[in-house]
Amino acid sequence: MVIGIDMMGGDYAPLEAVKGIKDYFNAVQSPATLLLIGNEEQVNPLLTEHQLTGTPVKVVHAQQVIDMHEHPTKALKEKQQSSIAIGFHLLASGKIDAFISAGNTGAMLVGALFSIKTLEGVIRPTISSIIPKTNGATGLLLDVGLNADCKPEQLNQFATMGSIYAQQILGINSPRVGLLNVGEEEGKGNLLAQATYPLLKENNKINFIGNIEGRDILIDKADVIVCEGFTGNVILKMAESLYDINPQNAAKDPYYSRFNFEIYGGTPVLGVAKPVIIGHGISGAMAFKNMIMVAEKMIRTDVLQQMGEALKG
């Protein structure tokens, strides 16, 4: 198992990535091999400083970096020697089994969509986010921004992929799938919600429980919550603010601390053939460690291939 890491992506690169790698090695007994893609002159001294020489890491030199403000498609095309472009080349050619970056989100999404094949039958890949529940459990929300506008068939696929991810990665047996709506009754909502409901109801690969409302998101009513990416991204950013705007509450109440994105690492792209995990631009060591651990689990469980089989059947 070989996991590729973009060492130059993110506001605190490459230091926080190196610290996260050290934390990962300290946390597991049989670590994966890590291929570190970045500027050797910056990465190698940090590996020495943090006593990572002799560990299962190898540095692949990348002389260019795609900055956060650059146009994703243009940058990937013009910066073939960037850490993100090299990472996707290695993933597409089978040199690595997963790719992680906290760099330019748009470039990561473009790379995932055009460098790595989508699973057979997938209309559009999706990205998800972990939602901490008040009872200590976790749920999954998708889409959270990749697909601002969706068709009912896409939401139906998101429900299937999200359900498999919740089973294999989050360890939820028979996850309950809810459609985010403005009311619980069948027939509620806009045209998209009304057309999606019967598809989810007929989907025998999921445990569909019907519509859920915004007030149900943080309680233990559904394990997988499906919506289009515009609504999902608004909810995601609001949830992140619960941790950011009042850190004092996080210290007093453990529940608020669970809104710290670093606990969950990054966002996997679901619907492509190989694991691609996108981290927040301000990711620190904890986020990098957890992104590596999520990638490792996705490889070990073969979760993406399970999604492909479910969508083909």
Results as ranks from 00 to 15, higher is better:
residue 137 A to Y: 07
residue 8 M to G: 02
residue 220 D to I: 14
residue 152 P to Y: 02
residue 52 L to C: 01
residue 5 I to D: 01
residue 275 P to W: 00
residue 266 G to Y: 03
residue 5 I to K: 01
residue 174 S to M: 10
residue 134 T to R: 05
residue 160 T to W: 05
residue 290 N to D: 09
residue 146 L to R: 04
residue 216 D to M: 12
residue 42 Q to A: 13
residue 167 Q to V: 11
residue 252 K to P: 05
residue 149 D to V: 10
residue 191 L to W: 07
residue 16 E to P: 02
residue 145 G to M: 15
residue 177 V to M: 04
residue 28 V to S: 07
residue 264 Y to H: 10
residue 203 N to D: 10
residue 64 Q to T: 14
residue 171 G to L: 08
residue 139 G to F: 03
residue 278 I to C: 01
residue 12 Y to D: 02
residue 257 S to M: 12
residue 245 I to T: 09
residue 94 G to S: 07
residue 274 K to F: 00
residue 144 V to A: 04
residue 262 E to C: 09
residue 99 F to C: 12
residue 124 R to K: 15
residue 179 L to R: 00
residue 15 L to Y: 07
residue 302 D to C: 08
residue 17 A to F: 08
residue 83 S to W: 02
residue 242 L to V: 14
residue 199 L to A: 10
residue 262 E to M: 13
residue 121 G to A: 06
residue 184 E to D: 08
residue 193 A to G: 07
residue 242 L to T: 09
residue 76 L to T: 00
residue 300 R to C: 06
residue 186 E to D: 08
residue 290 N to E: 14
residue 3 I to G: 01
residue 263 I to V: 09
residue 123 I to K: 06
residue 158 F to W: 04
residue 72 P to K: 11
residue 27 A to L: 06
residue 147 N to Q: 04
residue 145 G to K: 01
residue 112 A to I: 08
residue 123 I to M: 14
residue 79 K to V: 02
residue 72 P to A: 15
residue 181 N to A: 11
residue 49 E to Q: 12
residue 185 E to L: 15
residue 43 V to K: 00
residue 58 K to F: 01
residue 60 V to D: 13
residue 288 F to K: 04
residue 156 N to I: 07
residue 207 N to L: 06
residue 28 V to H: 04
residue 15 L to R: 07
residue 163 S to T: 06
residue 189 G to R: 07
